[in-house]
Design a protein around this nucleic acid. Sequence first.
RNA 1: GCGUCGGUGGCAGAGCGGUCAAUUGCACGAGACUGUAAAUCUCGCGCCCUUUGGGCUACGGGGGUUCGAAUCCCUCCCGGCGCACCA
Length: 385
Amino acid sequence: MSLLSNILSRGVERIYPSCEDLERRLLQAPLRLYNGIDPTGPSLHIGHVVALKKLREFQGLGHQVVLLIGDFTAMIGDPTGKFSVRKTLTEKEVQSNMERYVSQIGKILNLEKTELRYNSEWLGTLSLRDIISLLSEFTVGQMIERDMFQERVRRDEPIFVHEFLYPALQGYDSVALDVDLEVGGNDQTFNMLAGRTLMRRRGKEKFVLATKLLTDPTGKKMGKTEGNMLALSDSPDDAFGKIMSWPDEMLPLGYELLTNQDMDEALGRIESNPKAAKEALAKEILEWLWEDGAGARAQESFTERFSKGKISGELPVVEVERGTLLSDAVISSGLVESKSQWRRLVRAHAVELVGGKTIDNPLYRADKNLQVRIGKSRFLQVVIL
RNA sequence: GCGUCGGUGGCAGAGCGGUCAAUUGCACGAGACUGUAAAUCUCGCGCCCUUUGGGCUACGGGGGUUCGAAUCCCUCCCGGCGCACCA
């Protein structure tokens, strides 16, 4: 398989209008392509990486990559698919999210060759007149065609008018950036196609490449909305653990989307030893997206901690006065939410001192430095002041 | 605007005067078994209290009826649908 057709197929869900058309276009001249990311959360997560990696591949082929930070759209909020409307973020939140994103993105893209843009640049200056004229390029029919909306109609759930605005604005990004291709997750297909509609009216063909989504076997997206996200800001140990807790069935997708390994070989290794394949994947992802050596260290610490039952690596630390209730120490660390929950955990024999002694008194007091383990994966170091 | 149905825990969705902190499913947490996987089994899943026990706050908001309300009434807010308006 040629390099190009590999790029156009690996991890790709669908290309609009067609893979062949895009391939033909790619052979003619360098393209200008982009991916937009709304800085809605405190950190980039593994789902973002898929599209960025795809951008990187095009970048390697000499195409001009534009990375769009949706600082404006982040404040509006894309309809979430849940019936609730996403809470709007303040400028300040967006600002600080954004800065973190950019440094994380540097791990994936070559920032020197990347054009970095913010959509407040053009969206922030649209007048009401402009907006009306933009919206007049879409029909309600086109908007509610989106299956999320269809679903809501079917379920008698509300659709708010402003939710139609988001696809229009994202579409306008394409116009403002004058791109030839947009890359994004399959969940962005509708919005990406809105841009295609706008571009076509302006006499330009815009291609859309929708990547596969990293999902667990129940088809649920790994993302911040789902709570099982792997954030690039996670500690290496956490990140490693999260990947290890991915279901085996996710491994082929993980390899396809997050590595460059030959898929036939990868599938073979997954088949013969899923656990080893998972560890290798976790290690590779960490080496790539975290610091050098992070993968190896995390793997070692993981093995120590779980396979051999020892602890290693950094533990969160809580400093308390001598004689403080362990429950208070643990709750103040954030590992446990409430005293009620603490009691339940103790009752379930889920709390032990590292070394093996189970704590069965909810009113246990810390009178010396302790290392506490709660459940399988929560650890805490209690230090007496 | 009118009519009508509805607003319950993270989600879905029961309950329709007391035994409801609220059936059930999903999600989640813990234990067992494992590979911190899956599957399976068990337990838990509002908050607070030293306990098989007690207290507090909760079923959109507020008020009321009642010994007692998620359950009845009034009112306000929000949503779906239909009609009207508009065309």
